[in-house]
Amino acid sequence: MNVLEKISLYFQYSYVQNAFIVGVLVALCSALLGVTLVLKRFSFIGDGLSHVAFGGIAIASVVGLSNNMLLVLPITVISAVLLLRAGQNAKIKGDAAIAMFSVGALACGYLLMNLFSTSANLSGDVCSTLFGSTSILTLSAADVWLCIGLSAVVLLVFVLFYNKIFSVTFDENFAAATGTRTGAYNLLIALLIAAVIVLAMNLVGSLLISALVIFPALSAMRLFKSFKAVTLCSACLSVVCAGVGLLTALLADTPVGSTIVAVDIAVFFVCWIIGAVGRRG
């Protein structure tokens, strides 16, 4: 059986179709926001929030919620708002606040799981939450619809506020001085990130989400020079990488999350070389 036949066989299974839908949507949303995050020097917020989401999942599994999204989404959104506030507060600097949140949530989450977990395979649970090893292939219909709905909201908001997000990213002081409510837009960006991170937990697990946010944006920045082109390129690269990564993971039987990230890294180096050669030529 050649590779193509194998792929078409896989696609007859609904769990593979679901994985693809969710994978592509998550990759698209995270890449769009990634450009803004990287340029605003907010890359680590994604990382911090993903660890918070891990803590949220730990609580959800301890409490015994069947759909842990209901708890994880609000917790992550609240943390996003708090982190953003902390970034503006001079008393605890933004990076320190993120580090604090991030390791704190990770430690407490693991502690909670250890103390109260009823599962027989604790380390397996933790591992799949951190690295998303198989959860993408065991999505329920409700998960898929939630993902489609949240992605649609993220995409719509991003398109509607694209120009304002650009302005706030490029020069917050100017935007504020000329009457754009920068505080509100920063909050909006934080809310979108929180939503994307909760979505991405299923795909790559909480430790690897930052890669999905950062790599496509950085790759696109090597190649293009306008904000629009970078945003579009970042979205395309991310979707292609997620697709290729998922297929590779299925065919070679490797962990989905880390395979996608590995493809992202490879593409980054290719873009970096093309960019370097282009500048010299």
Binding site: N163, K164, F170, S226, F227
Partner: peptide, 13 residues
């Protein structure tokens, strides 16, 4: 990464 046009236009926002 932004073009001159994108930046100048943002003044209208």
């Amino acid at each position: 990464p932004a073009t001159v046009k994108e930046i100048v236009l943002s003044g209208c926002l």
